[in-house]
């Protein structure tokens, strides 16, 4: 039990349970399993994005361009679907992943080959990708009536009583969990964040690994481009404007250290869920949605204060934990 309390994720989970409990006192239906499934589904996109951002932050980098990538890729698939409704949706998803991958690879190459700090690179591509969305669309919107029924319907279809969107989120979570805990790539990502110099001597190609994490976050951005557009059924230049900071906020609340090396898949998912619950709960308990921004801001500050304490105590030891277990 005591060992369990050491984990940040347990505390975060407890905070979420308390939060749901508090909301239930004002709106009893909130803790209903059907409603919680709905909240999970609503938060799926943010969870997936937070996982993509997590691997980048773990290597002491940051990807500010994810939301712009999402916007651009979403526009590409929406325009493709509007122009050629015959293209099957799975192929469109592959296209979305590829477009996202290319955008992520551009970030990664600039970070890897030119050694430009990632915050500068992605600050630049943040504006470039969103501007490029305007260029390809000419500023026009793609509306719901231009999208095919399959394009919109796929993620809403239920499989075993759960929407496909939630299944995609669960699949991505499982994939990230496997990669981060069971592969050499996952360990290298942590190692680079903990100590880049030592990683080099341990035989890890730091630059190449950073390139790979940007490719991952790019693909995630691309995937979410399709998911976002088919969920909110409108593709415009304004899609997900400023959302990059929500993604980072989810990571921070989830206990992922911006200094790299600390964080887990569970944390990122719970951090996103925390934000998702707040945004879902405010309307039903009659708090103006205008409060949401200030509340999530306070949550971020609180989370980072608590995380900083935890980090100081724990230090940056990853092997000890494995030995103790």
């Amino acid at each position: 039990m005591k060992a369990l309390l050491k984990y940040r994720e347990v505390w975060l989970l407890a905070a979420i349970v308390v939060l749901i409990g508090l909301i239930s006192t004002r709106f009893p239906g909130f803790a209903d399993p059907a409603n919680l499934r709905q909240v999970f589904n609503d938060t799926s996109i943010l969870m997936i994005l937070a996982l993509g951002q997590m691997v980048v932050i773990l290597t002491r980098s940051i990807d500010l361009s994810m939301a712009s990538n999402l916007c651009f890729t979403g526009m590409v698939v929406a325009m493709l679907n509007a122009a050629h409704p015959a293209i099957p949706i799975p192929l469109l998803i592959v296209i979305a992943l590829l477009v996202g991958l290319v955008l992520g690879a551009i970030n990664g190459l600039l970070v890897w080959r030119l050694n430009i700090p990632s915050i500068v690179v992605t600050l630049g591509t943040l504006t470039i990708y969103r501007g490029a969305t305007f260029v390809i669309s000419g500023g026009a919107w793609v509306n719901a009536d231009q999208m095919s029924a399959e394009f919109i319907g796929l993620q809403r279809a239920a499989f075993l009583g759960i929407p496909v969107l939630s299944w995609i989120a669960l699949l991505v979570i499982a994939l990230f969990f496997l990669v981060m805990t069971r592969t050499a790539l996952g360990r290298s990502i942590y190692a680079i964040g903990v100590n880049p110099t030592a990683s080099i001597y341990a035989g890890i190609d730091v630059g190449r690994t950073k390139f790979i994490v940007f490719c991952i976050s790019g693909m995630i951005g691309g995937l979410c481009g399709y998911l976002w557009i088919s969920r909110y059924v409108i593709a415009s230049v304004e899609v997900a404007n400023g959302y990059e900071l929500n993604i980072i906020a989810a990571c921070v609340i989830g206990g992922i250290s911006i200094a790299g090396g600390i964080g887990s898949v569970g944390g990122a998912v719970l951090g996103a869920l925390f934000l998702g619950i707040i945004s879902n709960a405010l309307p039903v308990i009659n708090i103006s949605p205008f409060w949401q921004m200030a509340i999530s801001g306070s949550a971020i500050i609180l989370a980072v204060v608590l995380n900083a304490r935890g980090e100081r105590r724990q230090g940056r030891i990853i092997l000890k934990k494995a030995e103790a277990a």
Binding site: A294, G297, I300
Partner: peptide, 12 residues
């Protein structure tokens, strides 16, 4: 991180 938080807080 702090200023991402206060950014939401102040504008919020």
């Amino acid at each position: 991180v702090v200023t991402i938080g206060t950014m939401s807080l102040f504008r919020g």
